[in-house]
């Protein structure tokens, strides 16, 4: 059994995919914790859907299935989508959740129109587009994985360099503006990083599940700590671990898709956090409540005993 395990890791292609998925989980976990604190968790979901028209337009214009062009198209569509969401929430009374849902569905609708146009016009084999959208890490070739790893590494590096600025921005943007930080620029930068993480992740885990890689590790990490630094690291580790487990189970023979397995792995970690985390977890809450009840009972008994004693003395 152990031999088979190791054999899997010795296959160079599997190694690359494993490495790529871990880096992806790490990167999206790190940027996801900032998104979570800024109450923009579902931005990832909206941007992942919004990437579809970008990818289609890139394909229509170039006619080739180059991953790099797809990434550029998706990123451009993502940036347009963030501007759209920002415009709607700033200029009307529509709230952020509705703005997200509008941009998500309209962009995805337009994307489907373009996709069906491509399919009906029969411009070559478009199956690459499907793969790109629904994600299949096992079908990635080495150059894709290298691209993914490099981008994830850059993402993590930017977060590490601008940690102090992002921290202030997540907790108190007003104060950050008062100190003279370029708040609008930094906000747009965080958005851009989310767009990049989403775009890179789509081909590994698919449109719908990319959101989970941004949200679930961050929420799980939040259960364990009150410190941003610890949370970001923990979230990255949880993301990387889910990438590892997901890719491993997917590669170990039964040919299940990588994306859902990665998401399930991170969900399991989330459930573990919900139950076992210190202070915020269910178990510790139950224990705390039981302890408080015991304390109360002891106090009550003590008071009763005291009163009885006093009454006996009076008699």
């Amino acid at each position: 059994m152990a031999g088979e395990w190791l054999a899997l890791f010795r296959d160079p292609n599997a190694q690359w995919i494993l490495f790529g998925c871990m880096l992806l989980g790490l990167g999206s976990g790190v940027i996801g914790s900032f998104a979570y604190l800024r109450k923009q968790s579902l931005m990832g979901d909206a941007l992942a859907h919004a990437a579809l028209p970008g990818v289609c337009i890139a394909f229509m214009l170039s006619g080739s299935k180059s991953i790099l062009l797809f990434l550029i198209g998706a990123a451009a569509a993502g940036v347009v989508a963030t501007f759209g969401i920002g415009f709607i929430t700033r200029h009307t009374r529509i709230k952020q959740d509705a703005a997200l849902a509008i941009v998500l569905s309209v962009f995805f609708g337009i994307g489907i129109v373009l996709l069906t146009r491509i399919q009906h016009s029969g411009a070559g084999n478009q199956s690459g587009l499907d793969k790109f959208l629904f994600g299949q890490a096992a079908s990635m070739v080495r150059s894709d994985v290298i691209l993914m790893a490099v981008i994830s590494a850059v993402l993590i590096a930017v977060c590490a360099l601008l940690f102090k600025e992002f921290k202030l921005l997540s907790f108190d943007p007003g104060f950050a503006r008062g100190l003279g930080y370029p708040v609008a620029f930094l906000e747009q930068l965080i958005m851009l990083l989310i767009v990049i993480a989403v775009v890179v992740g789509i081909q590994a885990v698919g449109v719908v599940l990319m959101a989970a890689l941004l949200i679930t590790p961050a929420v799980s990490a939040r259960y364990w700590t009150e410190k941003l630094g610890v949370m970001v690291v923990l979230s990255g580790v949880i993301g990387a671990l889910s990438g590892l487990v997901g890719t491993y189970v997917s590669a170990s023979g039964n040919n299940l898709p990588t994306g859902p397995l990665t998401v399930l792995a991170s969900t399991v970690l989330f459930v573990v956090s919900v139950v076992f985390a210190p202070r915020r977890g269910l178990l510790s809450k139950v224990l705390l409540r039981a302890a408080a009840r015991n304390e109360l009972r002891r106090e009550k008994e003590f008071l009763l005993a005291e009163r009885r004693e006093r009454r006996e003395e009076a008699v």
């Binding site: 979570y36 109450k39 923009q40 968790s41 579902l42 990832g44 979901d45 959740d97 719908v208 599940l209 959101a211 989970a212 941004l214 949200i215 679930t216 961050a218 929420v219 939040r222 299940l256 898709p257 994306g259 859902p260 397995l261 998401v263 399930l264 969900t267 989330f270």
Partner: peptide, 20 residues
């Protein structure tokens, strides 16, 4: 958990179960 994050966690997990 913030409401949007709890939406995100729940539906992605269930969707993943469905796909599997």
């Amino acid at each position: 958990v913030q409401s949007d994050a709890s939406i995100g966690v729940v539906f992605t997990a269930l969707f993943a179960v469905g796909v599997v």
